[in-house]
Design a protein around this nucleic acid. Structure first.
Length: 113
DNA sequence: GCCGTGACGACGG
DNA sequence: TCCGTCGCCACGG
């Protein structure tokens, strides 16, 4: 039994295209939960093991990875991103280059799904 | 109900 | 750019 908000958040994270990243706040907004970036972070820790959700494409609004530099988790996330050709330098990603900018179509599609 | 705790964010120095 | 501060909100003790 999981909070309904978590499902909305997971769905939204799944909409981030491969090779792009989005911020916690951005996901919260798109999920219809403005101002609840921290809830997004929480929910990513509760992703069911049998469900694929590209959690590693979610980073801070500053471009920094959420995990501290050098930690196992940060290294894992870095590896996953680099497999998608997202450049991670000094534990951060250049948002100018890799941040997902949803088109109107993508946002409307989410409403239907 | 109060309080501390987060995979956060905006802002100012 | 790198910090500290404050606001934020869901949870658990």
């Amino acid at each position: 039994m999981v909070n309904q908000h978590y499902n909305q958040i997971w769905q939204t994270v799944c909409a981030i295209p491969k090779g792009k990243v989005a911020s916690y706040g951005q996901i919260a907004d798109l999920a219809g939960l403005p101002g609840r970036a921290r809830l997004v972070g929480k929910s990513l820790g509760y992703i069911p093991k049998d469900m694929f959700v590209p959690w590693y494409r979610v980073i801070r609004s500053s471009g920094q990875l959420a995990f501290s530099a050098g930690s196992d988790q940060a290294l894992h996330q870095t590896g996953m991103l680099q497999e998608e050709n997202v450049v991670v330098f000094r534990n951060r990603v250049k948002l100018r280059v890799f941040q997902w900018q949803p088109t109107l179509d993508e946002m409307l599609w989410k409403l239907n799904g």
